[in-house]
C-alpha cells in the first residue's frame, strides 16, 4: 500500500518574538519587523506525513502553501526534511481572505493537484490567527471526514479495499483513539512528535529550488546563473498555481469570498492603574506580605 499525502503548511510571522517595532504608529502590523517562519504545528503535521512515507514506500508527500513568493521557503524547508515537492498557491485574488476563503482556495488546489489524495495533514492552527478553522473547513469543502487535535497516527491499514486511519487525539481533559476511513483530513497538535531535522544531502539537492514568481520580474530560469541545472533537473522548479490554474471561483476567493470583515483593529495599550512600586528588598516584601494578610487577601 502506498499513500498520497498533502501537507498544508503556512508561512507565518513569528508572533512569539514580538519586539517594540512590531506595530506601526498607525496600529497596523509591521510585517517586515517580524521574521517569517514555518508555522510550528505545520512542522508537527509534516512529521506525521513523513513517518507514513517511511512506513509505506511509494508514498508521496506534497506540500501546498498559500502566500506571496517568499512563502515558497516553506516548500523548500519541507523538502529538506523529506517532502517530495510542493505548490505555491499565489494570486492577488486570494488577498484579504478569511479562513473560509482560504479553505476554499486550498480545497480547490488539492482537487486540482491531487484528486486521489488519501490524507490531508496540517497543523491544528497557525500562530498568527490561532483560529484552528482551516483544517475542518477544507475537510467540509472536499466532503471529507476530519480528525482534529491529533497527537499521533497509530496505524493506517487497508481492510477489504478501504484504507483506514487510526489516530489518537487530545480532547478536553483526556485522550481519544478514533478510526476513520480515508480520505480524511488530520490536524496535528504542537504536542505531537517534533519534526525531524533537515537532511544535509537534501539541503544540497534542493536549495536552488525556486517558484517562478521568486525570480526577478525580468528574468526566467534560463537566465539564472545555474540555467543548465534548471533544464536538467525539473524538480528545481517548484509548482506555482494561480486562481485561474485551479479554476477557482473569484467570488469565493479573497476579500469577496470572506463572510467575516474586520471592523476595527486596536493596538493594545493597557490603561494604567495606580500601582504601588516596590523593590525586591526584604523590607518591601515583608511590608507587602503584612499588608495582604491585613487585608485578608491571603492567609
Amino acid at each position: 500500500m502506498s499513500l498520497k499525502i498533502v501537507v498544508l503548511a503556512k508561512q507565518v510571522p513569528d508572533t512569539r518574538n514580538v519586539g517594540p517595532d512590531a506595530m506601526t504608529p498607525e496600529g497596523t502590523i509591521n510585517r517586515s519587523a517580524l521574521p517569517a517562519i514555518f508555522n510550528p504545528e505545520d512542522l508537527n503535521a509534516l512529521e506525521q506525513a513523513l513517518r507514513l512515507k517511511d512506513q509505506f514506500p511509494g508514498t508521496t508527500v506534497t506540500v501546498i502553501t498559500m502566500g506571496p513568493g517568499r512563502a515558497a521557503e516553506v516548500i523548500r524547508e519541507a523538502m529538506y526534511r523529506g517532502a517530495d515537492g510542493g505548490y505555491l498557491l499565489t494570486d492577488r485574488a486570494f488577498a484579504g481572505a478569511d479562513t473560509l476563503a482560504t479553505s476554499y482556495a486550498l480545497a480547490t488546489a488539492i482537487k486540482h493537484v491531487c484528486p486521489d489524495v488519501d490524507l490531508i495533514i496540517g497543523g491544528r492552527q497557525a500562530i498568527d490567527g490561532d483560529t484552528a478553522q482551516v483544517g475542518p473547513q477544507v475537510a467540509e469543502k472536499l466532503g471529507l471526514n476530519q480528525i482534529t487535535y491529533v497527537e499521533g497516527v497509530k496505524e493506517v491499514k487497508e481492510v477489504k479495499g478501504v484504507k483506514e486511519v487510526i489516530a489518537t487525539r487530545h480532547i478536553d481533559g483526556g485522550v481519544e483513539t478514533v478510526e476513520s476511513p480515508l480520505p480524511c483530513v488530520l490536524t496535528v497538535n504542537g504536542s505531537a512528535a517534533p519534526c525531524r531535522p533537515r537532511n544535509v544531502k537534501r539541503v544540497m539537492k534542493y536549495k536552488r529550488c525556486l517558484a517562478p514568481m521568486e525570480l526577478a520580474p525580468d528574468t526566467t530560469f534560463a537566465e539564472l546563473p545555474y540555467a543548465e541545472q534548471y533544464e536538467k533537473k525539473p524538480y528545481l522548479k517548484l509548482g506555482q498555481l494561480t486562481c485561474a490554474d485551479v479554476n477557482a471561483d473569484l467570488q469565493q476567493c479573497g476579500l469577496a469570498g470572506s463572510p467575516t470583515k474586520v471592523k476595527n483593529v486596536e493596538n493594545i495599550v493597557f490603561k494604567a492603574k495606580e500601582s504601588k512600586v516596590l523593590s525586591g528588598s526584604d523590607e518591601d516584601v515583608n511590608g507587602l506580605i503584612k499588608e495582604l494578610l491585613n487585608d485578608r487577601l491571603i492567609g
Binding site: 478569511d98 479562513t99 473560509l100 484552528a132 478553522q133 482551516v134 487535535y149 478536553d172 467575516t260
Partner: peptide, 21 residues
C-alpha cells in the same frame, strides 16, 4: 475541542462567518 472541531465545519457548509476565541 468540540466547538473548534464543529464550528468551522458548520460555517463552511453554511458559508457563514465564524470568529474563534
Amino acid at each position: 475541542v468540540v466547538g473548534r472541531d464543529l464550528g468551522p465545519r458548520v460555517s463552511s457548509a453554511l458559508h457563514s462567518g465564524l470568529t474563534a476565541d
